[in-house]
């Protein structure tokens, strides 16, 4: 597991002005999910989903509340295991590596697959700078120059650097809601994951902050594979290259975004995007 494609990027190419280098040059699908089902109780929350997420693009997952879209997202970095009693069947591969192989430590999976949450959650005891570097520091990185460089890159990539560069020592929670969310994205990017998962990242933000986050997503996809769960169909059309529609735990349709919204093949998809339910 350790000598994964992610570890091949040499440090020397990292400079303060460049972005954090694209961790993956692989053209294979980022995620290859085969027949994935997830159970919290007897009834599956996600039921037999097979899906391939293309590398370095934005994939949106849409669907009504309770359709299993968040649960599916969380099993992509094994976050669903935090819920006691959760079970998962099927296989998920990240660039060919089975994420659920018995010898794989979920911690390693989560270093490769970052996540941004619905509610922004900067650590309240930490400054802006500390928040960005926390993933590296608590994973054993001691090199101060490296940390400093990474922090600046991550903040630049999340379009926050110009706004906060003069008060990096202020508490992270002193920022506005939209800035906090971008700080959380910077925090996730700083550990150089191969994929970023976003669970309704803009649903708690006002329209201006939302558009900033969406711009950011568009920037990030040059380097990252992004999977975003959203209940906002306009957002999906704005940011996503391809869109998956979930309904009652099942993947109903997965197609390029324009195609899915303009020319849905399944009647349920059509019903949902025309607002007849959900």
């Amino acid at each position: 597991m350790e000598p994964s494609p992610a570890t091949t990027a040499p440090v020397s190419t990292v400079t303060a002005t460049s972005a954090i280098p694209a961790p993956v040059q692989d053209t294979r699908p980022a995620f290859d999910a085969q027949n994935v089902s997830i159970f919290y109780t007897q009834k599956p929350a996600v039921d037999g989903v097979t899906l391939q997420v293309p590398s370095r693009s934005v994939t949106a997952i849409i669907g009504p509340s309770g359709c299993g879209k968040s649960t599916f997202l969380r099993c992509l970095n094994r976050m669903h295991e935090l819920v006691p009693g959760a079970r998962m069947t099927g296989t998920i591969r990240l660039y060919g590596d089975d994420l659920y192989a018995p010898e794989i430590d979920p911690t390693v999976v989560r270093r490769r697959v970052g996540m941004v949450f619905q509610k922004s959650n900067p650590f309240p005891t930490m400054s802006i700078a500390e928040n960005v570097t926390v993933g590296l520091r608590l994973n054993g990185v001691r090199d101060r120059a490296f940390l400093r460089e990474r922090m600046e890159q991550a903040l630049r990539m999340s379009a926050l650097w110009d706004e906060v560069k003069n008060d990096l020592n202020r508490p992270g929670i002193s920022l506005s809601g939209g800035q906090q969310q971008r700080l959380c994205i910077a925090r996730a990017v700083a550990v150089q994951p191969e994929v970023l998962l976003m669970d309704e990242p803009a649903s708690a933000l006002d329209p201006i902050a939302t558009s900033k986050v969406e711009e950011l997503i568009n920037d990030l996809k040059k380097n990252y594979t992004i999977v975003i769960v959203t209940h906002n169909m306009q957002q999906a059309t704005r940011v996503a290259d391809q869109t998956a529609f979930f309904y009652l735990g099942k993947l109903i349709e997965f197609a390029p975004t324009r195609e899915l919204f303009n020319n849905p093949r399944q009647p349920q998809t059509e019903a949902y995007i025309t607002g007849r339910f959900g």
């Binding site: 911690t107 994973n139 054993g140 990185v141 550990v191």
Partner: peptide, 8 residues
């Protein structure tokens, strides 16, 4: 490790 992280 270019990420400089310690192994989990």
């Amino acid at each position: 490790d270019p990420k400089q992280m310690r192994p989990a």
